[in-house]
Design a binder for these strands. Structure first.
Length: 300
DNA sequence: TCTATTTGACCTAC
DNA sequence: GTAGGTCAAATAGA
């Protein structure tokens, strides 16, 4: 697939916020329209092909849903403030010089880094508990960054306040979710996580990561075949690796997939990444409850 | 058995 | 004294 500029106005500093907003809404609408067209074509091509048809239907349905949610948010007159908006601090100011960055997002896990939960606390005057995460390289590479996630609203989608304390020193390149725009034929696209890897990310994979990466590549390859009207490798019984049938249980540092950018595994919204969403290609999107949000309260 | 999450206890800032 | 942040033992799942 050819790389194209995402916005006709990209790079123009003279464009007003309203104009950029209009462009975003227009592009989202276009994306939604194209997804619907693709869904019609794919389902027509895959009719009667069992799992391949179901897989394509599920993924395209989630893509369509994601566009709908984004459009709904962007079009709402009382929509939530932009992601980088600083929130009035709910916590106490400890008076130190540790850098803190706060933002509001509907998908607190998709920030391109991997986190390990180390605590959860009920905060006074709030309806939801606050969860505390450390970078998974906290010990290994002495990375000091922590992340606090607190649900702020129970809307559709629910919004979370995410506070980052300190900066990453683990030298782990953040994934770039926006590259998803370029589509499934981009070799960098990681469909199993809803994110992309940078070209040199492979060098950072440890032994466990290599196996995980292999599984992801199989999934990507399989999906490409499905969307191309072919049988996925292994589905005919000849391959040595089958399309992932079910999540092999919880995989913390390789959380299963988020197709539509919902919370927990990893993390996918327009600006951000990880923890807890497991994507079962065979039929269901499921979430962990590491954010204190009951699974039945999730917007899907 | 290993790894990640949960949760009560502890520490510290206000 | 209260509340936010972190630690670490207990627990659960693969």
């Amino acid at each position: 697939m050819q790389t194209q500029p995402r916005f006709a106005v990209s790079g123009s500093s003279s464009v007003s916020a309203d104009e950029r907003e209009a462009v975003v809404i227009r592009e989202l609408a276009r994306g939604h329209e194209l997804t619907e067209q693709l869904r019609a074509e794919a389902l027509s091509a895959l009719r009667g092909q069992g799992q391949a048809e179901a897989t394509a239907a599920l993924i395209l349905q989630e893509m369509s849903r994601a566009f709908t949610v984004c459009l709904s948010i962007m079009s709402s007159p009382d929509r939530a403030p932009p992601p980088e908006m600083p929130e009035p601090s709910a916590g106490r100011n400890r008076g130190d010089s540790i850098p803190r960055k706060e933002k509001l997002t509907s998908s607190p896990h998709f920030d391109g880094h991997q986190w390990r939960k180390y605590g959860q606390k009920r905060i006074t005057n709030t309806n939801f508990p606050r969860c505390y995460y450390k970078c998974i390289y906290h010990r290994e590479r002495n990375c000091p960054v922590t992340k606090q996630v607190q649900q702020r609203s129970n809307g559709d989608p629910p919004m979370y306040a995410v506070t980052y304390v300190n900066e990453h020193t683990c030298d782990t390149p953040a994934w770039e979710p926006e590259a998803v725009v370029y589509g499934a034929t981009n070799p960098l696209l990681d469909l199993s996580s809803g994110l992309t890897r940078q070209p040199d990310a492979r060098a950072l994979l440890d032994e466990r990561g290599i196996k995980e990466e292999h599984e992801r590549q199989v999934l990507v390859s399989s999906l490409a075949c499905v969307l191309g009207g072919q049988s996925p490798p292994g589905s005919s019984g000849g391959g040595d690796v089958a399309l992932v049938q079910e999540p092999q249980g919880r995989t913390r540092d390789a959380p299963a997939v988020s197709v539509a950018g919902a919370p927990e595994l990893p993390p996918l919204d327009a600006d951000d990444g990880l923890d807890v969403m497991d994507y079962d290609v065979t039929g269901a999107l499921c979430f962990g409850d590491s954010y204190g949000l009951p699974v039945h309260d999730l917007p899907f």
